[in-house]
Design a protein around this nucleic acid. Structure first.
Length: 566
RNA sequence: UGGGGUGUCGCCAAGCGGUAAGGCACGGGACUUUGACUCCCGCAUUCGUAGGUUCGAAUCCUGCCACCCCAGCCA
C-alpha cells in the first residue's frame, strides 16, 4: 500500500481537509462504484487512486460498491474480475463490499416517500413524447399532463408498476422539480423505469429499477459516504444529487466532487471501443497484452507499483487532458529497472565462430543478476567457440558512430571477451550468415587484460547451451496522431470515430531467438531486462522448454534515434 | 443563442495579491563491460486574450476568445 505517505496533494484532498478542519466530517469515507459491465482499464486505475487514495490519505474507509442498477448491461462475471484487479493494484475495500442492488428495497421505500410528499409522480408519456416535452438546451420544457396526479393515484400506479402490471416503457416515475430549469437534468428526471428482466443479483424480485441519479445519492447516504468522487460529466448532475439527498431527508449529506478522467495518447480508453476491438478480433481478448486493461498490462508484465506511480504522477485536476504514453513507459522502466533481473537473449540470431577458440572447449562465466543489487545473486553462462549475437549488432558497412561490430572492428561480449571480426560469410543476397572472429584471450572479463576499452558491448548467447524461445514485441495499439488521415474538408478525423483506421498493424511482432539457460527456468510473471533489447516478462501462456516472453517496454535507444535522424 | 466546466512550457501539473514548483519529453555534457541506468547543465521576463484595480496580479474585477460536458426510461 502506498500513497498515504506521499506529500503530494491535489484539489480534492484540499477540499476534504477543509471539511475535516471545519468539522463537517469526522471520518472520511469514500466509495468505489464500478459498473460490472466490463474490465477495468488504466482509466479506472485513476478512479481507484482517487477514491481509495483519499481514504488512505485520511485514515478513512473505502467501500467497494458495484453499481448494478441496470440489469440490461451488467454481468456477474465482471464482479469477480474487478475485485481481482483492484486487489492486484494494491488496494483493499476496508469499508466493505456492497451492491447497489441490495438497496433496491430502500430506494423503493424512498420513492414512495417522495410520492407521498408530492415530489415524484408517475408519468405515462412515451419516451418520444417525453423527449419532445423536455424542451431543448435553449428552450424550456413543458409540464407533463400527468404531473399533477394525486399522491394516492401515484402511489397506486407506482405499486402496480412494481407488481408488474405494465409492460416496459409504458410508465416511469419522475421527480417533480422544474421543467423550465436551465439545467436539463433538473427537468423532471426519471427516477424509476420498468424493466422486465432478471438481475444478476436480485433475480426476478424486481421489474422496476432505479436510475443512477436516484440510486447513487441514496447509496452514498445510506453507507455514510462523506466524499463521493466522480468524473466531470456528472457536474451537471450534482444539483440533482443534492436534491435527492434533501428530498429523502437524509441526516448526512455526502459531498460529490468531480475531476477529469484519464486519457492516454495512442490508447483507446472507452469501454465501448475496447469491446469492439475484442469482438472484431483485433486483439485476442480483454487481457491481450496490448489492451489498456489492468489485466492486459498485468499480462504484459507491468507491475502494479508502476501503474500506481503513473496515475499519481499524471495528477488529479479538472482540466481535460491527455497524458503522453511516454510517462507511463517511463514509470514502467523505472520500476522494472530496479527489480528486473538482467539476462541475455538474442532475438534475431547471427552466428559467430571464434576461430582461435578450441573446438569442443567451453568456459563457464559468472554474471551478476543485477548491477545494483548483489543480493539478487549471480548466474552461470556458458561461453564457447560458436555463439549468437543480434543481427542488428553487426553491419557490413557501418556508418560513423556505430559502436557495434563490423568487419575489422572490435567489441566486448558482455561478461566475456573482446572479439574482432575477421571474415564474413554471406548468403546469395549478400546478407551475413556467419562471422568469423578471433577472441582476445587476455581480455576476459574480470581478468588482467579486462581493462582494455572498446567502444561497444554486445549481448550474446552460446549456440549449443541456450534455449529457443519466442518473444512478442508490442507497440502501441494506435498509430501516432500524425498518422491521422484527413477527410475531404481537411479536418482531421476524430480519433474515436475512426480509431480502427488508426490501428497499428505492427502492434505485435513475434520473433524466435535464443536465450541463456536461466531463462528456460523462469516462472510466469518473472521480469527480465534483456541487455539493450528491453524489459521482458515471462508470459503466463509460456510452455516449459520453449518459454514465451512479452516485451513490456523497450529500452531507450539513442543509437536508433541518431540513425533515424541521419 | 441556455446551463455547467476548463484554459500556466511539446504533455501533465503546482501556484490561492508579493514578483512562475516539480515530473515526463527534449537538447548538451560526464560516466559506462547494457549507446540502458546514474549524474550534472539547459529548457515559460511569462500564465487564452483585451482592459481595469493595486506600490505590486497567473492570482481580484470587467469584456472577449477557445475547448469540453448536458436534451438516455445508460452510468
Amino acid at each position: 500500500m502506498q500513497d498515504a505517505k506521499s506529500s503530494r496533494t491535489n484539489f480534492i484532498w484540499e477540499i476534504v481537509q477543509q471539511d475535516i478542519d471545519a468539522g463537517r466530517c469526522e471520518r472520511v469515507h469514500t466509495r468505489l462504484p464500478p459498473e460490472p459491465n466490463g474490465w477495468l482499464h488504466i482509466g479506472h486505475a485513476k478512479n481507484i487512486y482517487v477514491n481509495a487514495g483519499t481514504a488512505l490519505r485520511f485514515d478513512g474507509l473505502l467501500n467497494l460498491r458495484f453499481d448494478d442498477t441496470n440489469p440490461a448491461k451488467e454481468e456477474q462475471e465482471f464482479v469477480d474480475g474487478i475485485q481481482n484487479d483492484i486487489r492486484w493494484l494494491g488496494y483493499e475495500w476496508n469499508g466493505g463490499l456492497f451492491f447497489g442492488s441490495s438497496y433496491f428495497g430502500q430506494c423503493y421505500d424512498l420513492a414512495e416517500k417522495l410520492i407521498r410528499d408530492g415530489k415524484a409522480y408517475v408519468c405515462d408519456l412515451s419516451q418520444e413524447k417525453m423527449r419532445e416535452m423536455r424542451g431543448t438546451l435553449t428552450t424550456p420544457g413543458q409540464n407533463s399532463p400527468y404531473r399533477d396526479r394525486s399522491a394516492e393515484e401515484n402511489l397506486d400506479l407506482f405499486r402496480r408498476m412494481r407488481a408488474g402490471e405494465f409492460p416496459n416503457g409504458t410508465r416511469v416515475l419522475r421527480a417533480k422539480i422544474d421543467m423550465a430549469s436551465p439545467n436539463i437534468n433538473m427537468r423532471d428526471p426519471a427516477l424509476y423505469r420498468i424493466l422486465h428482466m432478471p438481475h444478476h443479483q436480485t433475480g426476478d424480485a424486481w421489474c422496476i429499477y432505479p436510475m443512477y441519479d436516484f440510486a447513487h445519492p441514496i447509496q452514498d447516504a445510506l453507507e455514510g459516504i462523506t466524499h463521493s468522487m466522480c468524473s466531470l460529466e456528472y457536474e451537471d448532475h450534482r444539483p440533482l444529487y443534492d436534491w435527492v439527498i434533501e428530498a429523502c431527508a437524509f441526516p448526512n449529506h455526502p459531498r460529490q466532487i468531480e475531476y477529469a478522467r484519464l486519457n492516454l495518447t495512442r490508447t483507446i480508453m472507452s469501454k465501448r471501443y475496447l469491446r469492439k476491438l475484442v469482438e472484431e478480433g483485433h486483439v485476442a481478448g480483454w487481457d491481450d497484452p496490448r489492451m489498456p486493461t489492468l489485466a492486459g498490462m498485468r499480462r504484459r508484465g507491468y507491475r502494479a507499483d508502476a501503474v500506481r506511480d503513473f496515475v499519481e504522477r499524471a495528477g488529479v485536476a479538472k482540466a481535460d487532458s491527455v497524458v503522453e504514453l511516454a510517462l507511463l513507459e517511463h514509470c514502467v522502466r523505472e520500476d522494472l529497472g530496479d527489480v528486473a533481473a538482467r539476462a541475455m537473449a538474442v532475438l534475431k540470431p547471427l552466428k559467430v565462430v571464434l576461430t582461435n577458440w578450441p573446438e569442443g572447449h567451453t568456459e563457464t562465466l559468472t554474471l551478476e543478476n543485477h548491477p545494483d543489487h548483489p543480493e539478487m545473486g549471480e548466474r552461470a553462462v556458458t561461453f564457447g567457440r560458436e555463439l549468437y549475437i543480434e543481427q542488428d549488432d553487426f553491419m557490413l558497412d557501418p556508418p560513423k558512430k556505430f559502436f557495434r561490430l563490423f568487419p575489422g572492428g572490435e567489441v566486448r561480449l558482455k561478461g566475456a571477451y573482446i572479439i574482432r571480426c575477421d571474415e564474413v560469410e554471406t548468403d546469395a543476397d549478400g546478407n551475413p550468415t556467419v562471422l568469423k572472429c578471433t577472441a582476445d584471450l587476455t581480455s576476459k572479463s574480470g581478468g588482467e587484460g579486462a581493462a582494455r576499452k572498446v567502444k561497444g558491448t554486445l549481448h550474446w548467447v552460446h549456440a549449443a547451451d541456450s534455449v529457443p524461445f519466442e518473444a512478442r514485441l508490442y507497440e502501441p495499439l494506435l498509430n501516432d496522431e500524425d498518422a491521422v488521415e484527413e477527410d475531404t474538408e481537411g479536418d482531421t478525423i476524430p480519433e474515436k470515430k475512426d480509431f480502427i483506421a488508426r490501428l497499428n498493424p505492427q502492434s505485435m511482432q513475434v520473433v524466435h531467438g535464443f536465450a541463456e539457460p536461466a531463462l528456460g527456468q523462469a516462472q510466469p510473471g518473472d521480469k527480465f531486462q534483456f541487455l539493450r533489447v528491453g524489459y521482458f516478462a515471462m508470459d503466463p501462456d509460456s510452455k516449459p522448454g520453449r518459454p514465451v516472453f512479452n516485451r513490456t517496454v523497450s529500452l531507450k535507444d539513442s543509437w536508433a534515434k541518431a540513425a533515424q535522424q541521419a
